[in-house]
Design a binder for these strands. Structure first.
Length: 198
DNA sequence: ACGATGATAATCT
DNA sequence: GATTATCATCGTT
């Protein structure tokens, strides 16, 4: 069953914890999301949309429940789920997850990973394992080959500063990284931090 | 387990 | 021309 319309039509900070435990499918591969980051848009110094609408960020201003995929560091693709109403730039970056279907296919896409926990540990690894490419930017997550299943109940979560964000937006004033405590697919140095909410 | 480093190109100023 | 929401590899503890 796909997610209910309107659930994602809220600011990224509210949507982010809802996505922990969600299962995203592309084709034969499914991943259970264990780590995300919220990007609030024009008021957020860490967001691509901080300086307003540009050709790259048009998808972020689009309707919620679509994929915002962008090209990073000259060789990687990262995936966000667009949230907040159309016209507002807000999205949640998918940072890590656990492969729950299509394991063999995911392994063949990620030949450098030594263990299954490494398959989707990291935003660019996650997109590579799922097979998400730049051409998927703007895709509706309720339409094939995609599917998004939100969790029935909220998981326990921890928060902390965002990773890889330089300047103001990466500091402790923006603790907008959310993860499931103890998950093998989360970056190890903060995997067990116990500040939890909910 | 952790830190440093090179790879590599779209996007924005 | 600078910057970048990263990864894999290789070095040192």
């Amino acid at each position: 069953m796909p997610f209910a319309p309107g659930v994602l039509e809220r600011p990224a900070l509210e949507v982010a914890p809802l996505l922990l435990g969600a299962v995203l499918t592309r084709g034969v591969i499914s991943v259970r999301i264990t780590e995300v980051e919220a990007y609030l848009g024009e008021t957020d110094p860490g967001s691509h949309a901080f300086r307003g609408r540009t050709p790259r960020t048009v998808t972020m201003y689009g309707p919620p429940g679509h994929l915002y995929a962008y090209f990073s560091y000259g060789m990687h693709v990262c995936a966000n789920i667009v949230c907040s109403p159309e016209g507002t730039a807000s999205a949640v970056l998918l940072r890590a997850g656990e492969i729950v279907a299509g394991l063999d296919e995911a392994r063949s896409r990620r030949l450098t990973s030594k263990t299954d926990a490494d398959l989707a540990r990291g935003p660019a690894r996650l997109t590579k394992a799922l097979g998400i490419e730049l051409g998927d930017d703007g895709a509706d997550l309720n339409r094939a080959p995609f599917d998004l299943e939100l969790p029935a109940r909220l998981a326990a979560w921890a928060t902390g500063p965002r990773t890889g964000v330089s300047g103001l937006g990466g500091g402790v004033d923006y603790p907008w990284r959310f993860w499931v405590p103890g998950e093998a697919s989360v970056s190890p140095y903060r995997r067990h931090v116990a500040k939890r909410a909910g």
